[in-house]
Design a protein around this nucleic acid. Structure first.
Length: 422
RNA sequence: GGAGACGUCGCAUAGUCCGGUCGAGUGCACCACCCUGCUAAGGUGGAGAGGGGUUUGACCCCUCCGUGGGUUCAAAUCCCACCGUCUCCGCCA
């Protein structure tokens, strides 16, 4: 949720943000109107309620013979109070609904426009060259008996898969490497619930334009999370957290579920785009002042992971129109995928400023009261990384060299070799 | 799945039967000050969250006793639903 004070004092900033996102500008004026209506409705209700309270006090202490008359008087008031309360509640809800449908205000410097209007911040590492025809990750993965798409489809349908053998081990290794690095950086490891209540899913901003992406279990009124950002944001919902000793940093490991509605025919091959995968996610609660610096730190940790794995990548500043509802700025780290001759997103880190915290009621104590904290998230490892890993480090015979950083997590294994006669 | 108990302002608890004196008492912890030449203790005062108004005054008002409804002139207190916690029984890993 945007800052209501900003709405009142500097609506132009919000209008500019909405414009950069290609979102509705008119809604800003509707929200301002609703704000005024809300305040006058509340004032009216409170005036009547005060009167009722005063009268109630007199009823309680009045002598018997005056009581009947006073009660009659109070009865007259009661109906009016009830109506005013109803009106105030309606006005409040109307205002909240409008305000909630305004996306987070993008930060200065975020490129305007849509998906293709990102700005490349840097490219790092040499793109791999092969003296042979490179195979794609699925061919390699099947050769290693690491990925089984066909049986995944048999058991669960399209976009499901089995990781087995070195495939399964590779994923666990990636997560473990990421977790060790997170621990080094002071993160608290967390294994969160992956089914969450509506208000948590709502609060993180995933039920806006991306509602179709989310699995829902109507029998239990629970949502399956698409990232552990959701439970980790909910972790401190409606709490006043203590940031006096620095940011609260969590590294959440969880399975993630995505419906991938609207991406029919896109990335149908292999494990690039799937309904279920694992992810190690960083999630940080910090002060609004520190948020941008923390965002840079998160990108740094992410880049450290890709570098350790010997992957070639670029970092992009995602354009306003391609940001999620909650993000004020987002950096994607994209790894080079040789057979696609393209960079593909491996990590994403968003600065949600105070937007999520406001919706979820997460504050910290400062001078003169409480105020919303800033929240940020970023990826440290996901199943998809296997794609870049296999393709980048493949050899002509179908084997794959394991990056040194990963070997300790694979029992010292340095080369993954094709399996024959399975 | 069956039965029962409980959910109060950081923590612990009083209040709920008999609605107004609870706009919520007490203890601990906390903050400020005072006293005491150490330590412990003692004294005084303060202290929650959200919102509205404002002559912007350290002022006034409204809301918050798990959540949401209802009854009533008036609800922490009565009624209903839901959520959560705990105990016992059953069933099953």
């Amino acid at each position: 949720m945007i800052d209501p004070q900003l709405l009142r004092e500097d609506p132009d900033t919000i209008r500019r943000s909405q414009e950069a996102r290609g979102a509705s500008v008119g809604i800003v004026d509707q929200a301002i109107e609703a704000e005024a209506a809300r305040r006058s409705a509340i004032s009216e209700f409170e005036r009547l309620r005060a009167e009722q309270n005063a009268l109630g006090k007199r009823v309680a202490s009045a002598p018997k013979e005056e009581k009947a008359a006073l009660v009659a008087q109070a009865q007259d008031l009661a109906a009016g109070v009830k109506a005013a309360q109803q009106a105030a509640g309606d006005a409040e809800r109307h205002f909240t609904d409008l305000t909630r449908s305004i996306a987070n205000v993008v930060l200065d410097g975020v490129p305007a426009g849509g998906e293709d209007d990102f700005v490349v911040l840097r490219e790092v590492g040499e793109k791999p060259e092969f003296g042979f025809e490179a195979k794609d990750h699925l061919v390699i993965g099947e050769g290693l008996d690491a990925i089984d798409m066909a049986r995944g489809a048999k058991v669960s349908g399209a976009r499901f898969y089995f990781l087995k053998g070195v495939g399964a081990r590779l994923e666990l290794a990636l997560m473990s490497l990421g977790l060790d690095r997170a621990l080094e950086a002071g993160f608290t490891p967390v294994i969160p619930p992956t089914l969450v209540k509506p208000e948590i899913m709502e609060g993180t901003g995933f039920l806006g334009e991306h509602a179709e992406e989310v699995y829902y279990l109507p029998a239990d009124e629970l949502y399956l999370v698409g990232t552990s950002e959701v439970p980790l944001a909910g972790l401190h919902s409606n709490e006043i957290v203590d940031l006096s000793a620095g940011p609260l940093r969590y590294a959440g490991w969880s399975t993630c579920y995505r419906r991938e509605a609207g991406s029919y025919g896109k990335d149908t091959r292999g494990i690039i785009r799937v309904h279920q995968f694992n992810k190690l996610e960083m999630f940080v609660y910090t002060t609004p002042e520190d948020a941008e610096a923390e965002h840079e730190r998160l990108v740094g940790w992410q880049e450290g992971m890709l570098q350790a794995l010997g992957l070639s990548y670029r970092v992009i500043d995602v354009a306003a129109g391609d940001l999620g509802t909650s993000a004020a700025r987002k950096f994607d780290v994209e790894a080079w995928v040789p057979t696609q001759n393209a960079y593909r997103e491996l990590t994403s880190t968003s600065n949600c400023t105070t937007f999520q915290a406001r919706r979820l009621g997460i504050r910290s104590r400062g001078e003169g009261g409480t105020r919303p904290v800033a929240t940020l998230n970023g990826t440290l490892a996901t199943t998809r990384w296997i794609v870049a890993l296999l393709e980048t480090h493949q050899q002509e015979d179908g084997s794959v060299v394991v990056p040194e950083a990963l070997r300790p997590y694979l029992g010292g294994l340095d080369v993954l070799r094709p399996v024959t006669g399975r």
